[in-house]
């Protein structure tokens, strides 16, 4: 008796009549050998995707998908991944972040916004029980070069395309931060969402310490770290509106907005 193997699958993909006729009958009954082969081999064609689509259709997932909210952070990671074979942010961070934690002296960049609760009444994040929380945020940045060297950056520093930027923050209380990257002439692009702890810490999310790769960048790049107190997490779109709205919008918001500007030089022309 013949069972499924690579040759048989190839014949089935070509719709060879003899193979089709034989396996149409053979697979009508359970066959441990063929099922074991099917479990470990793909195809033919898109059969695997069709099987998974069918199985997932049995439960609630397919129905939920229609109304699923957009995972902006996940989509931002996909968009960054599509721009080239960039190193995964998480892996860069895991390699470089621990070094940064021991060597990084906090460089305080100008805090653009420490909100005045009196200004906040009526904004879209009202409704939190108790008095509105406030948070002040400061940001420090270190560049890790391709050879592993670390250097503290001042705002407007020139950096190389091969550098990875490591971030450290000081927050006056716990909350959440959204990290955006903005290129000249473009809108802010969400890089990730990170929990904030009170005190001075490396920027770290569920996926590890954060490092921002500059591969593929050129010219002015701005990093925005936007903090909000616990329980007042704004949507990325709402934060984007604040960022592109200029200083007036930032003054009106109850967000703590910090920015750090660098100028990326591409190729070998470093610093």
């Amino acid at each position: 008796m013949k069972h499924l193997d690579a040759d048989a699958m190839s014949a089935l993909s070509r719709r060879e009549p003899a193979a089709v006729a034989y396996f149409r009958e053979h697979l009508a009954a359970p066959c441990d050998t063929c099922e074991a082969f099917l479990a470990t081999h793909s195809g033919p064609d898109l059969l695997d995707g069709q099987v998974d689509s069918l199985l997932l259709g049995v439960g609630p997932t397919a129905q939920k998908a229609e109304d699923a909210p957009l995972d902006e952070v996940g989509l931002a990671r996909v968009r960054r991944g599509m721009k080239g074979n960039r190193p995964d942010i998480r892996r860069w961070g895991l390699v470089a972040g621990a070094i940064a934690a021991s060597l990084l002296a906090v460089v305080v960049v100008p805090r653009m916004r420490a909100e005045d609760p009196a200004v906040q009444a009526g904004t879209e994040w009202d409704g939190v029980k108790g008095p509105a929380g406030t948070i002040a945020l400061e940001l420090a940045v270190v560049a890790r070069s391709a050879d592993g060297a670390l250097r503290r950056l001042d705002p407007q520093s020139a950096v190389a395309e091969s550098d990875v930027l490591l971030l450290r923050y000081h927050a006056t209380e716990a909350g959440t931060a959204l990290l955006f990257q903005q290129r000249a002439g473009q809108g802010p692009e969400l890089l990730g969402r990170f929990p904030l702890e009170a005190g001075t810490h490396d920027l770290e999310g569920p996926q590890g310490l954060a490092g921002v790769s500059l591969e593929g960048e050129s010219g002015p790049v701005t990093l925005w770290l936007v903090g909000s107190a616990g329980g007042q997490e704004p949507s990325p779109d709402a934060v984007r509106e604040v960022l592109v709205g200029g200083s007036a919008a930032r003054e009106r918001s109850r967000l703590a907005v910090t920015r750090f500007d660098v100028s990326v030089r591409s190729g070998q022309n470093r610093r």
Binding site: F23, L27, P30, L47
Partner: peptide, 18 residues
């Protein structure tokens, strides 16, 4: 899960061939 899935895959493959 994979064992059960392979049964479904066999069943679907049979239907495709039919």
């Amino acid at each position: 899960l994979e064992r059960f899935r392979s049964r479904i895959k066999r069943e679907l493959l049979r239907r495709v061939l039919a």
